[in-house]
Design a binder for these strands. Structure first.
Lengths: 252, 252
DNA sequence: CGTCCATTTGATTAAGCTCAATGGACGTGG
DNA sequence: CCACGTCCATTGAGCTTAATCAAATGGACG
């Protein structure tokens, strides 16, 4: 369960990291090759697999090619905080690159395809391309801003706004790599995990979801969530300015 | 009030950014020179000056040479979240390097000496030194982990633990650049701002501070705070593992 | 001495937590 | 196929924490 089960069935598809970074800035062929090099060994991981366990030695990082993951840490007696969701093109472990041992646990929310690479390979990348270095830096800062936005919501908003906010966050984030403009997605998180993401108990998360549904802000069919985008944006005063990177300062 | 008042009186002192990064990894003379170049124009700013206002065009970044600053954003009707404190050696604006306009407001908590530099200068640095690029990246990730720690506290801890936690955070952070092992510092934040940092109202922050004082976990003399380090560490289950960077992967 | 600002205290209320029970969906072994 | 266990969603009742509202106190400083 906890290790990749078999050689990937999906080798040969395009590099997700490349796609994501190209979304922010033009990349020359050498830079593209560097990024693709990070995705040479795709592996299949199944839902609920623990990719990195808090306390593990941090040897490899992973480019997400397919699927969702989430990182969490335990707080006191049984409480938990989920603080980041990973989508295709994200790098699992990047935040903790500077640590010997992981602080957080990262789990597959769906079946995933992950491409492991050594810390050393990132070093290679810093050595070879200042453009990619700066771009990675900028993308890391965007991830941080996403977390700050959620912190604001947890700290200063009521349950209804918090849940509305996180749905808008997810939608916006998915649209970076997806072409679809639909406001629908499969949410591979149960209500406990969703609660841990927005700082609510499972019970209160449930009540809040039902309230959002009654108010016509979301529709649920199993794990499929359809958003009333306009309504949710208002309800959560969601602002997506931080997803648009200005790359004009980045080395050519 | 909002602009630096006079040519700096402190020109000539050592580079704080250099000191901070050298704390994490050995630096060669060229790298040191690059860092010092960012601190060529020290400016004096007075307490309560607004260094960057949300919405401003983001032209310059600032190395903090002296003083404390904090960044905040407004949330809904009058609520506010303070999400980062800046100390000597930190770079104001780094997180928003990829944005055209600032999302957050940064204010001097004390009189400060700041060294402005152009975004372009950071580009120069990415171009010139892969070692510094990687180190800046790693340090950025540490800042992010500090924010995640505080998010955990806000989301999953009670008022008492939250305030204890933030005091330990401040102490640990100060010790990166300070040589003193004392558990005392001047806290240049009023109770409203401290509350905005940990997600409490000013009134409840006050009650919590008094409770910590009654319990012998802190002592206050004006804005001077003395910590019962052991007690606070236990009360907040504070862990400082993320302040120790592993630099072995960083390019030479 | 009055003004400004921050701190302190009290009384009340509301949001969200805890505990507890129920029910549906689904997979497994007999 | 049925009985059972597991996981997850749902709902109710009572309780706790922190917010809110309101006011008093206490410097610091011109």
């Amino acid at each position: 369960m906890d290790r990749p089960s078999e050689p990937a069935a999906t080798a040969g598809s395009e590099s997700c990291l490349e796609t994501k970074l190209a979304h922010y800035a033009d990349l020359n062929p050498e830079d593209r090759a560097l990024l693709r090099a990070l995705e040479e060994k795709p592996e299949d991981w199944s839902r609920k697999s623990v990719v990195v366990q808090a306390g593990d030695r941090l040897d490899a990082l992973y480019v997400v090619r397919k699927g969702w993951l989430y990182s969490s840490q335990l707080v006191g007696d049984g409480r938990r905080q989920v603080f980041q969701l990973f989508y295709p093109g994200d790098i699992v472990g990047a935040r903790e690159i500077g640590l010997k041992h992981a602080l957080s646990t990262t789990v597959c929310a769906t079946d995933c395809v992950l491409c492991p690479f050594e810390k050393q390979a990132l070093c290679e990348l810093f050595n070879s391309s200042s453009r990619l270095s700066a771009l990675l830096y900028a993308v890391g800062m965007v991830d941080e801003m996403v977390i700050i936005e959620r912190m604001k919501a947890i700290s200063r908003m009521k349950a209804r706004e918090r849940v509305a906010h996180v749905f808008m966050e997810i939608l916006t984030r998915l649209r970076i790599t997806s072409s679809s403009r639909e406001a629908v997605f499969e949410l591979p998180l149960n209500q406990e995990t969703l609660g841990d993401l927005v700082g609510l108990t499972q019970v209160h998360t449930n009540r809040t979801l039902r309230q959002l549904e009654r108010d016509g802000l979301i529709t649920r069919k199993g794990s499929l969530i359809e958003l009333n985008e306009k309504g949710l944006r208002e309800a959560s005063s969601f602002n997506d300015a931080y997803f648009a990177i200005d790359t004009s300062w980045i080395p050519a």
